[in-house]
Design a protein around this nucleic acid. Structure first.
Length: 286
DNA sequence: ATTATTGTTGGTAG
DNA sequence: TCTACCAACAATAA
């Protein structure tokens, strides 16, 4: 499920479901999912905290929790304590608001919440268990290494061009590097390169400034429409808003040529051999 | 039974 | 130190 738009959609949901509420109980048993502590330690670190903010960078989420203030006149050693959870959804992780007390299928962590006497529940669900909920004092390395976030920071074309100019690999592989731009995944890269009319195999350092501008535009375009699709009622279901992802053999929506499928850097890649032109390095004179 | 999967990390080699 | 390449992680759905 999760690339940048899906994680942002998740963040907005969590904001509504969790912000300002107190965690009164946590169910966590799988030591693979929580880091670096055991599930027991995870539960005790989080219980009794209230959720102040939920932020996103790329595909990462960060929950900032604060100790619920003790009643007037009482002192607490833990007053002012702040806990931060870094969360990555892996390939199949997501959060759901759970209507009943019954655990959901593939639920890995359950948060029992309370505000003004009202109880609600939010569940982290992940069939494949590649996601992580990571308690840390300082940002985890993967978060620190993230490049600019296209939605939060925008895309600086000259800066992106400089970065791409140092890379020889195929542009699609480079776009998946989270240090280049945070949050671009397989689908968004495929859709953006189609929009830009650039063959995904083109070496990154062969792109012109106009190409980089087109890619930036393509990314903004696909991120915005994926997010819009998720947010419309009943959205996020079906094939989504994607123009070519997963549509090998279908006619290109722009030029009608049959869409092709190749593998790049171990990832499936759909593209149009008709209107996505390959860029080549100019051969150096010798 | 076989194949494909929206992601990241850690190792090795250059 | 930076880049490229590969295997591994784990489990489901078609």
């Amino acid at each position: 499920m999760p690339e940048l738009p899906e994680v942002e959609y998740t963040r907005r949901n969590l904001e509504r479901w969790m912000r300002g509420r107190t965690i009164v109980g946590v169910v966590a048993t799988d030591p693979l999912l929580v880091r670096p502590k055991s599930p027991r330690e995870f539960v005790s670190a989080v219980t009794g905290q209230s959720i102040a903010t939920i932020e996103r960078r790329g595909k990462w989420l960060r929950f900032v929790l604060t100790e619920v203030p003790p009643k007037a006149g009482r002192r607490s050693d833990r007053a002012g304590r702040e806990t931060t959870i870094y969360a990555h959804l892996g390939m199949t992780g997501w959060f759901e608001q759970a209507p009943s007390a019954e655990p959901l299928r593939f639920q890995r962590v359950g948060f029992e919440l309370e505000r003004r006497g009202k109880r609600t529940r939010v569940a982290y669900v992940d069939s494949r268990r590649w996601g992580r909920l990571w308690i840390a004092e300082a940002p985890v390395p993967a978060w620190t290494a993230l490049g600019p976030d296209p939605l939060n920071d925008g895309i600086d074309v000259p800066a992106l061009a400089t970065k791409l100019g140092r890379r020889k690999r195929a542009i699609k592989e480079v776009l998946l590097d989270q240090g280049v731009l945070a949050g671009v995944g397989n689908i968004q890269a495929i859709e953006a390169l189609w929009k830009a009319g650039i063959d995904p195999r083109s070496p990154a350092d062969a792109l012109s400034r106009a190409d980089v501008r087109a890619i930036a535009h393509g990314l903004r375009w696909t991120i915005a429409r994926t997010l819009a699709d998720l947010e419309k009622p009943g959205g996020g279901l079906g094939s989504g808003p994607f123009r070519i992802y997963g549509k090998k053999g279908a006619p290109c929506p722009r030029c009608d040529r049959t869409l092709a499928r190749i593998e790049l850097g171990g990832r499936t890649t759909t593209f149009c051999p008709g209107c996505q032109k390959r860029r080549r390095r100019r051969r150096r004179k010798g």
